[in-house]
Computed example of a mutant assay.
Amino acid sequence: MKIVFLSTFALDANVSIVNALKKKCDVYFFTEALYEIYNFLNKDQLNKTISEGTEVNELQLFRDLLALEKTYVVKGTRNANIFKKLYNSYRVHQYIKKINPDFIIIDNYMLTYFLSTLAYRKKMLMIVHDPFLHSGEDFVIDSFLRKIHFKLIKNKILLNESQRNDFIEYYKECAQNVSSSFLSVYDYLTCFKIRETVQTDNFNILFFGRISPYKGIKYLLDAFLKILAESNYENLTLTIAGSGDFDFDINEYKKYPRIKIINTYISPGNLAQLISESSVVVCPYTDATQSGVIMSAYAFKKPVIATDVGGLPEMVEHNKTGLIIKPRSSEAIYQAILELHNDKELIERMAENIENIYFSGEKSWDASAALFIDALQKIERQSE
Rank of each mutant, 00 (worst) to 15 (best):
V4A: 10
N81H: 15
I106S: 01
G292Q: 00
R146P: 00
N319E: 13
R78Y: 14
N42E: 08
K75N: 03
N235K: 14
V4E: 06
L86Y: 14
Y188P: 07
Y188L: 10
K85T: 03
N79Y: 10
L238F: 05
T237S: 15
A299S: 15
P303I: 00
I17E: 06
C25G: 05
F203C: 07
Y358I: 06
E55M: 03
I96W: 08
N356W: 03
K24E: 15
I194K: 14
V281P: 02
G242K: 10
V280E: 11
Y256W: 03
A299R: 05
G136S: 08
A369F: 10
T117Y: 01
K193S: 08
I50P: 02
L228H: 05
N202G: 05
N160E: 14
D201Y: 01
I37S: 15
T286I: 14
T77K: 05
N47W: 00
M1G: 04
K70G: 05
Q163C: 03
Y219D: 02
L6R: 02
L11G: 02
N177Q: 11
F144W: 08
L274N: 11
M1H: 10
S329V: 02
A67W: 00
K154W: 09
K172C: 13
V18K: 01
T307K: 04
I82F: 09
A375W: 06
K48I: 02
S360M: 11
I259E: 13
I217R: 01
I141L: 13
K172Y: 08
K344S: 12
E58N: 04
K24N: 14
I324Q: 06
Q290L: 07
L41N: 06
S162P: 05
S181M: 09
V4P: 04
L228W: 04
Q60S: 15
F144K: 05
F30I: 02
N204D: 12
I259S: 09
K154V: 12
S383K: 15
G361L: 01
L133F: 10
F224W: 12
E58S: 07
A229P: 09
A367C: 09
K172A: 10
R195S: 05
H129K: 04
H318M: 09
D343N: 07
W365P: 07
G209V: 11
S89N: 11
G311E: 10
I337W: 00
D130F: 04
D107Y: 02
S364N: 15
T112G: 04
P313L: 12
D64W: 00
H93D: 12
H318C: 12
T54S: 09
S51L: 14
I379C: 05
R210P: 01
A67G: 04
I354K: 06
L34E: 12
K255M: 11
I168S: 09
N319T: 03
V280Q: 07
I50H: 02
M126Q: 07
Q176M: 08
N235D: 15
D222S: 05
F5E: 01
P213I: 06
F150L: 13
E32F: 01
N57I: 05
H129Y: 08
A336H: 08
R164D: 07
I266V: 15
Y265S: 06
